[in-house]
């Protein structure tokens, strides 16, 4: 069963199309890796799922519900981390999570659990404004995880983290479907990173979906089309490059 499905989902800004008629199928309980170079439309797609921006075409269903009618209901089911960190600079990490906890109506203990999960416990009394980029990113992750939502939307969650942090968060994300029975939609620029976490992959370039399926299916596809497959990163680059050339030729 797909917990998120889109039909011809499109977002245009004026004459520029950021997301162009994509059909995504995100299976329940999967870690779905959303892959694409800068400006591919990953964040834009995720923002549409959160009701932060309105599609200009097509539609999508999240757990059987649609915007704007079920806005609050949908948001109850999604924990999210989108682009730049967002927090109250005048509050500590702990107080920031407490604000979210109050809105979600969670027990007090959920704050310390979330802090522990992302490894922020030693810094919980520090002002969020004074956090390093990686700590802010961890705080954002904690804010997404705190309610143990059935759906997690994480936009480049390892952005700004050190190698140890990247490894920790990757391991965490991979374990989430079993631990919390949730579905994770996670974006990245690196296929090598997605490969380590995701069991489903969607590749986006210039707003168009180039591929959707399992990593194995991607390898099979690539072999069939004569792309390099010893290293998936090369496959990804070849795929994007071929698409760019084709777009260039069509122009």
């Amino acid at each position: 069963m797909n917990i998120i499905e889109t039909q011809g989902l499109t977002k245009s800004y004026g004459g520029f199309t950021a997301v162009s008629g994509i059909n995504l199928h995100i299976p329940q309980g999967s870690v779905y890796g959303f892959l694409g170079p800068n400006g591919a439309g990953k964040s834009t797609t995720m923002k549409m799922f959160l009701g932060l921006t309105k599609p200009t075409g097509g539609s999508f269903v999240i757990d059987g519900m649609r915007f704007p009618d079920s806005r609050v209901q949908i948001l109850k089911e999604i924990g999210s981390l989108i682009e730049a960190p967002s927090f109250y600079g005048n509050l500590t990490g702990e107080e920031n999570l407490d604000i979210i906890r109050r809105i979600l109506g969670l027990p007090r203990s959920s704050v310390s659990e979330a802090l522990e999960t992302v490894g922020l416990t030693p810094h919980r009394k520090q002002l969020a404004k004074k956090y390093s980029l990686g700590m802010k990113q961890r705080l954002g992750l904690a804010g997404a995880l705190i309610g143990r939502p059935p759906i997690l939307i994480l936009d480049e969650p390892t952005n700004g983290l050190d190698p140890v942090g990247i490894h920790e968060i990757r391991t965490l994300i991979r374990s989430l479907p079993q631990r919390f029975a949730c579905t994770v939609l996670v974006s990245s620029h690196l296929l090598s990173e997605i490969e380590l976490m995701a069991d489903h992959i969607g590749i986006l370039n210039h707003g168009r979906l180039l591929f959707e399926g399992t990593p194995d299916a991607l390898k099979r596809d690539a072999t069939f089309q004569g792309y390099p497959t010893d290293n998936l990163e090369d496959t990804f680059l070849a795929l994007i490059d071929a698409d760019n050339r084709q777009r260039g030729g069509a122009r």
Partner: peptide
């Protein structure tokens, strides 16, 4: 100031 509004608008509160 630190974009907290963005977080608020992704939470189930009007």
């Amino acid at each position: 100031a630190d974009n907290a509004m963005r977080k608020m608008s992704t939470l189930p509160v009007r």
